[in-house]
């Protein structure tokens, strides 16, 4: 009888021994409702009001299509760079000991800490025709500012930390015995990396890459400085949403914003799914 009572207890009222349930519930729900949910619901209601036919018409209009295509293409370029660079940084920071390693590690947090507008300003000035980088690149015929490359570089900067910071802890926890076994069997370092290390860090690598891609798609502050924002050419989708708002075209703004939010939520679900799979594989519930 007693054992029965004990096992039954945790699911019942005993969980609420501590005070403050009503207060924190009321405070948190009110706040979440006003600050987060209400605005998001406003966007969804607006989207529902537009209707699917009109929604499709807005999204597939030439200017919106051009903006979406530019945003996705630049984000893909930025993410490919960040995937490679992030992997390199995680590997070097975890596996090697060298002077300046801690500074290099701290540098990885700069893009998170620095306001995006500041990053955009600095990159624009560096890559413009008379800037430090522009002076070297323009004579070679490479134009960055006011092109898709500028958009990609700005996106790249603000999403640098994601791949590094998701791969780093996994790489630190790897069992060195597997690699030693592979080495003793005569595998080359590259083969060891490809066949032993990479499969183990792959889920984390994919999560980091997905988040970096989502962040690049949504980046605004850094991009608008360097992009020049020419309609049909270097205008990103989120800027087009803002322009529609300024023209009082609320339907146009809502349709574009909703499209971007949907893509972001799909990417979030994808990275959560990967996270769940990774935890299961590593034996955690």
């Amino acid at each position: 009888m007693t054992t029965l009572a004990i096992t039954a207890a945790p699911s019942g009222r005993t969980k609420r021994v501590l005070p403050g349930f009503g207060l924190t519930m009321g405070l948190t729900l009110t706040y979440v409702g006003i600050v987060i949910l209400l605005p998001v619901i406003a966007l969804m209601l607006k989207g529902a009001e537009i209707g699917p036919a009109r929604f499709w018409e807005i999204i597939t209009a030439p200017r919106a299509m051009a903006a979406l295509r530019l945003t996705v293409t630049a984000a893909v370029i930025a993410t490919i760079f960040n995937a490679l660079y992030g992997l390199l940084m995680a590997w070097v920071l975890v596996r090697y000991r060298f002077p300046g390693r801690r500074i290099l590690d701290a540098m990885m947090d700069i893009p998170f800490a620095l306001p995006t507008a500041v990053a955009g300003l600095s990159l624009t000035a560096l890559f413009s025709a008379n800037g430090w980088y522009g002076q070297l690149l323009e004579p070679a015929g490479i134009k960055v500012v006011y092109t898709i490359w500028g958009v990609a570089i700005a996106m790249c900067f603000t999403s640098i930390p994601f791949v590094v910071r998701t791969v780093q802890p996994i790489l630190e926890d790897l069992d060195p015995q597997l690699e030693e076994a592979a080495r003793s069997l005569g595998a080359t370092p590259f083969t060891i990396f490809r066949k032993v290390v990479f499969p183990q860090i792959l889920p984390a690598f994919l999560i980091g890459t997905t988040i970096a891609f989502a962040r690049s798609l949504g980046e605004f502050g850094a991009v608008i400085f360097i992009a020049g924002n020419l309609p049909m050419k270097t205008e990103i989708a989120s800027l087009l949403a803002v322009i529609r708002l300024e023209e009082y075209d609320y339907n146009g703004a809502a349709a574009i914003a909703l499209t971007l939010m949907l893509i972001a939520l799909i990417l979030l679900a994808l990275s959560n799914g990967l996270q769940w799979q990774m935890n299961r594989r590593r034996g955690q519930p």
């Binding site: 966007l43 949504g218 803002v242």
Partner: peptide
Amino acid sequence: SISPIIAGVCYLL
């Protein structure tokens, strides 16, 4: 997960 610009649009709507 929601880009800040979309947050701004939500508030305007």
